[in-house]
């Protein structure tokens, strides 16, 4: 809401200040730990900085007592990539299914929603118990993967709903009229047009998996993923190594986010150009 002469009402400044504080609240602490991760070798967990060094990043790799950071990092990246791919394939398909009414659609929808809001630890507990009763060993690549999919698939589905809700079906009808088979229609029209949304699904799949802890905690088996390793560190590591690990994982997250958003932005820009 703005006033008639185009100037901002006082509430705008109030809200803007409020929003600014919220953003500071959101990012401030994160920025602080990135700064503190460059703490000098004699520095502690808080300010002041006793010099600037890469000591704690070095400790991350060299000291075995901080745990298996390198190994868990590799596992997490592989797992996140697999989750992203599976999430894209499965939730894009499921999204397409919901474009027509079908018997059982309510069941499938509420199954996904229930899976989304179920406390994560319970899902992990259930999976651990199921594997135990079936006599199967749990592992990050089996039970862990399944646990994470119960979280990323509903998210992917919701994103597909949002994307498909805005998708004009006459493009597909035009393709059919021009003689495209169903497969050609999907490949030549639907998928390319939905690509920005699909990249969004992949982004969510990757980052949600890469940061997941509640569902994975009981279902990951003997070898930890990175968030579980960090979780273990919070209880026994009291040095800025913790911050260094935080800085590294966040850089990976940001890298993935930036790649995804810039590719979405590039696609949208090209489309808006070609439309004019």
């Amino acid at each position: 809401m703005h006033s008639a002469d185009g100037s901002r009402p006082w509430t705008f400044y109030f809200f803007a200040a409020f929003f600014g504080l919220f953003v500071a609240f959101l990012y401030g602490p994160m920025v602080v730990i990135y700064v503190l991760s460059f703490q000098g070798p004699t520095g502690g967990m808080t300010f002041p900085l006793n010099g600037v060094s890469l000591h704690w990043f070095d400790a991350l790799i060299s000291q075995s007592r901080v745990g298996d950071i390198a190994g868990s990092f590799q596992r997490s990246i592989v797992l996140a990539a697999v989750v992203a791919v599976v999430t894209v394939l499965v939730s894009v398909l499921a999204g397409l299914a919901f474009r027509r009414p079908f018997r059982g659609s309510a069941f499938a929808f509420y199954l996904a929603i229930a899976s989304l809001i179920m406390p994560g630890l319970f899902v992990g507990l259930g999976i651990a118990l199921t594997f135990r009763l079936l006599g199967l060993p749990t592992g990050w690549y089996s039970s862990g993967l399944g646990a994470q999919l119960t979280w990323t698939l509903p998210f992917g589905l919701l994103i597909m709903f949002a994307v498909l809700g805005r998708f004009n079906r006459s493009y597909e009808e035009a393709a059919t009229d021009l003689g495209a088979t169903n497969w050609q229609k999907l490949k030549e029209v639907t998928i390319p047009m939905l690509l920005p949304g699909i990249i969004g699904v992949a982004l969510f799949g990757f980052t949600l998996s890469y940061d997941e802890i509640a569902r994975t905690a009981l279902a990951a088996g003997a070898k930890n993923t990175l968030p579980l390793e960090i979780w273990a560190m919070t209880t026994n590591v009291t040095s800025p190594t913790l911050y260094a690990v935080g800085a590294v994982t966040t850089i990976v997250s940001f890298f993935v986010i930036v790649v995804a958003l810039t590719s979405i932005g590039a696609i949208q820009r090209r489309r808006s150009r070609s439309n004019t």
Partner: peptide
Amino acid sequence: PFLTSNIIRMIS
């Protein structure tokens, strides 16, 4: 921030 690690955001 939602797409970055919850644990890291917590310990920050």
